[in-house]
Simulated scan of single mutants.
Amino acid sequence: MKQNRFEHWSEIKYLKDIVTNPMITVGEYSYYSGYYDDHDFEDGCVRYMWGDEKSRQLFNPIEDYGWHIDKLIIGNYVCIASGVIILMGGNHNHHSDWITVYPFVDQIETSYAPKGDTIIESDAWIGMNAMIMPGVTIGEGAIVAAGSVVAKDVAPYTIVGGNPAKVIKKRFTDAEIEKLMEMRWFDWEREKIEQASHILSSSSINRLYEFYQKEILPHV
């Protein structure tokens, strides 16, 4: 068992500081809160993903087989709770349409079928013990409830939950979501985000939009 790298449940690790796998792209200020899990982010939260140091030493499916390997792409200000599992491309060799789902070694080269990149867009929150299936896109501002299994794309600013995860509700009205998707606050300069943090920490999208029109748009 790996040593738990977290000293307390309140501690977080910024993904930029801990991710080494070149197949994983992470944005600014996105974090993993893994105190209650006994795995590292890249060796437990993210599973079956080629590209870590050991797997690169063992084999190279890109050069050996010509596979297109799925990537994990994480935006800015994403919150990932303890126990989250993000399933990736290492086990895409099971075919339900074949007579057997067993991955015979001599058929590995031809049996692999990519699922597509897994994308967690900015400002999404993945709740404790949720599982993200391969090839899913979780939209910006979305919330995945604890213990959910996400097998389909999640729309921006939508709350989903259950197994399989289904829409619980939208976080805001369609008009408000349209404004949020226009503003993309998580892409602003950090200084501007800190300047607007008191608005971001409220439910007043109109106030944020006023700030955006005054402080952001003139400099775009």
Rank of each mutant, 00 (worst) to 15 (best):
Y36Q: 13
I216Y: 10
V101L: 10
G141T: 05
D64Q: 03
M49D: 07
N91Q: 12
I18L: 01
S10A: 13
V19G: 02
I24V: 08
E176A: 00
K2R: 14
S203R: 10
W185G: 05
N76R: 06
E215P: 02
A155W: 08
M181Y: 13
K16M: 12
I193P: 06
F211T: 12
E182C: 07
K2Q: 14
D123K: 01
R184S: 12
S55Q: 09
G66E: 13
E109I: 06
F59I: 11
G139M: 01
M88G: 10
G66W: 02
F104Q: 14
F6K: 00
S111W: 11
N206H: 13
Y209R: 04
S202D: 12
G89C: 00
D153W: 01
C79A: 15
G147F: 09
P114Y: 05
V26A: 03
W9P: 14
V105I: 14
S202K: 04
E42W: 03
V105L: 08
N91F: 14
E194P: 05
W185A: 05
H68Y: 15
N91G: 13
P218L: 07
W67Q: 08
D43M: 04
V136Y: 02
T158D: 11
I216W: 08
E189L: 04
K192V: 11
Y31I: 04
V149W: 10
L58K: 09
Y32M: 07
D43V: 02
L72R: 01
M128E: 14
F104S: 12
S30N: 05
S10C: 10
G127P: 11
E63W: 02
